[in-house]
């Protein structure tokens, strides 16, 4: 088991190297000149060139990449072109809000999703199932920025229950954005829980359990659910990337000071070091979560082989 994990982690290193180069190229391909943006509309060519020199952007591309990677390996992510702040600080400031938001989204999506899924499976093909699935599918069918805007109008402006945005009001500021962000995942989890549970309930050992006279609740929660959770966990994990993407939109709607908004700001400003670091961070996070999912998967289903 440990061998497997170590092997997987070592396998990540070349993948990350490839990704880092791709991102670096990718970012420099984006049209737009940070020196020009930094210098402003009324700058003369000479002034733009001075800014370019001071940012080190006049160097050839490969040289920039090598020096970037050199610094990266020493743990130095460089400085923001825009504000001059160390990139590490910028990202660390934003990590907790975004992670908090993402995890809260996943948690309530899991809770409600599994609940709806279980109900739908138990009442299969009856109206609770239909309603549950309709609710679930509705969740993935809403544009999340629209949902966010409507939530703000309703719960903040009309009812005054939650703040319109930001993260200064403690847990209250997380409610609406996490709802807008998690709706889609909730739907997927509900659907997977349902289909997976339906399959499990049909299997031999469940029937045996029933024959032995075990109660419905203990069959569903004691036996069937654990077996059905495997695909659910997988789906939840795979949705992590989806959440990070969604966070860009939701954080913009809710003026939430997280990584997603930082990314959009940095892209607008062509703040290369920040974009680079952030996307690397996103990829790393995503890969690690997938690894975690695989490990959890094998825990839930010991029959899986590591190869």
């Amino acid at each position: 088991m440990w061998q497997y994990i170590i092997k997987r982690i070592l396998g990540l290193i070349p993948l990350l190297l490839v990704i880092s180069f791709v991102i670096f190229m990718f970012i420099h391909l984006i049209p737009g000149d940070p020196a020009r943006l930094m210098a402003g509309k009324d700058a003369t060519l000479e002034e733009v060139e001075e800014v370019r020199q001071s940012l080190g952007l006049h160097e050839p591309f490969v040289k920039q990449y090598i020096s970037y990677m050199g610094n990266l390996l020493q743990g130095d992510l460089g400085y923001s072109i825009k504000s001059g702040a160390p990139v590490v600080d910028l990202i660390l400031d934003r990590v907790m809000p975004t992670l908090g938001l993402t995890f809260l989204s996943i948690i309530w999506a899991l809770v409600i999703g599994i609940l709806i899924g279980v109900l739908s499976a138990v009442f299969r093909d009856k109206w609770p199932d239909r309603l549950g699935m309709l609710t679930a599918v509705s969740g993935i069918s809403l544009p999340n920025f629209w949902l966010g805007l409507v939530l703000i109008q309703l719960f903040s402006v009309q009812l005054g229950l939650f703040p319109t945005g930001g993260d200064d009001a403690g847990w209250k500021s997380y409610i609406l954005p996490s709802f807008a962000l998690g709706a889609g995942i909730m739907a997927m989890i509900a659907r997977f829980t349902r289909s997976s549970l339906v399959n499990t309930l049909k299997q031999e050992f469940i029937r045996t359990g029933r024959a032995k006279g075990l109660s419905g609740t203990s069959i569903v929660f004691g036996h069937a659910l654990k077996n059905s959770l495997i695909p659910v966990v997988t789906v939840a994990g795979l949705q992590f990337g989806f959440l990070l993407g969604g966070s860009v939109v939701v954080e913009t709607v809710f003026s939430f000071p997280g990584l997603g908004r930082l990314l959009i700001d940095s892209i607008q400003f062509r703040d290369y070091p920040v974009i680079q670091a952030e996307i690397l961070f996103f990829s790393l996070q995503f890969i690690l979560v997938n690894l975690l999912v695989d490990i959890l998967y094998s825990y839930l289903n010991p029959k899986i082989r590591y190869d």
Partner: peptide
């Protein structure tokens, strides 16, 4: 895998 590693919207 690499394509998957990028959050799709990003």
């Amino acid at each position: 895998d690499v394509l998957f590693a990028f959050p799709d919207l990003i």
